[in-house]
Write a protein that binds this DNA or RNA. Structure first.
Lengths: 228, 228
DNA sequence: CTCATCCTGCGATGTGCGTCACACTGTGGT
DNA sequence: ACCACAGTGTGACGCACATCGCAGGATGAG
């Protein structure tokens, strides 16, 4: 684990507000996992009590309906945590985790983390805050599903991806989200075709340029207004 | 606070696994709040750092869209906790809490709870579990919004209400949910009219009987099958 | 009791978006 | 360099559900 990894890990809620000594000890018990594009880390209904922090790459969390249709809960990048639900609430996983790009993760098992929580009660506080934030976000998304039309949800998803993965460049914000339009559709709860038409419409209006698994955002203000 | 209240409070995640002494001390610092039907406990965007546990009655949590349309996050009964998001993550409330029926609540402020968490780290664990469960439930509901049609969501909502508020009686399960069809519609993310038609259809099939702010569930198995 | 208000029931109409169908394009594998 | 297949772009069509409109019941305030 290099210096950059240490820094990325330090921004995860698990390490926030931990003193150097504690952080060092915690780093000592994480194990590193490597995934190639498309590889599955864990699947729905499996047992599992490990928590992961993304070091590098992108991971998608998906759920599969009984009839096979999929829905994408979120796409996670560096410093983001996942898999903790089965750790705090010992039940099978309710989502699958699949690498969207080649990725490296830091993993922590229940048995390794638990004694740590006892020694460092301040971690629990940060974890509670992280979960509270997630619940807020999820409630927000629920409201969007009910009140916002598909183009609006697409705009919102793009803005979210832009905020987290966007890189400023000449001629706009370059958002290499690494998602197919199919995946984007699963993320906003719509069909691939409708998402494609929404994107084409945005592009035609000059708000963005469509690239392979990426977009160039040209007019972020219009996009933002469309999302509300 | 009477014996029944003590028992109701004991089933809340906050008190779970707490020894008698700790529970007694925690009960000593809660304050009781009384609400009449329709009364607002707190509103969206307000500051607030209090957590509540329902002792008696029902509370609905609602969000209002900019254009005035509402959506109902959940309906909470005895032993259920709410308002904790602003406590763990200090930001304005993202929902309003309104009494559906006359209700009594136990309230705990940030400043009173915090020292307690330090002395009783095991509480944090239970709180993490409670939030994890809530996230699971919320993700489930999101998937339903995407994949399940309105009648299906209505059936599911009724089953959930039945499980939590239903009372066995002659000729079926009596579910006095105390919600208007409008509120039920906001809960499942649909229009009042569509929910009305779904209910009428269920009633006509003999699966339930519609009453004022209540239903008699006659054939829970069919209802269950319709919900999937 | 009486009127106002809230709630329920239900048909008529419009529309956003899912589904289907098919052509085009880019990418990786051998 | 080729082919196969995954991903993208677009139109035609139908349906589930929102919206609108209105009428009949229930509830409760005075």
């Amino acid at each position: 684990m290099n210096d950059r990894d240490v820094e990325v890990l330090g921004r995860a809620p698990l390490f926030e507000g931990l003193d150097d000594e504690g952080a060092k000890a915690l780093r000592a018990i994480v194990t590193e996992v490597h995934l190639s594009r498309g590889q599955t880390l864990f699947s729905e209904d499996q047992e599992g009590d490990r928590l992961y922090v993304v070091l590098d790459g992108k991971i998608k969390l998906t759920r599969t309906a009984p009839d096979g249709r999929e829905n994408l809960l979120s796409v996670l990048g560096p410093s983001e945590m996942f898999g903790e639900l089965s750790l705090f609430d010992p039940r099978p996983r309710t989502a699958s985790a699949i690498a969207v790009t080649e990725s490296r993760l830091a993993a922590l098992s229940h048995s390794d983390l638990w004694p740590f929580l006892k020694d460092h009660p301040e971690i629990s506080v940060h974890l509670l805050r992280a979960l509270a934030q997630r619940l807020r976000r999820t409630n927000e998304n629920m409201a969007d599903l009910v009140f916002t039309d598909v183009p609006g949800r697409v705009a919102k998803a793009l803005l979210d991806l832009a905020e987290r993965f966007g890189q400023p460049s000449e001629s706009g914000l370059h958002v290499h989200h690494d998602l197919t339009q199919e995946e984007l559709a699963q993320l906003v709860g719509a069909s691939r075709e409708t998402v494609n038409k929404a994107l084409a419409d945005f592009a035609q209006r000059g708000w963005l340029r469509i690239e392979a698994r990426a977009v160039q955002v040209l007019d972020i203000d219009r996009l933002r207004r469309r999302s509300r």
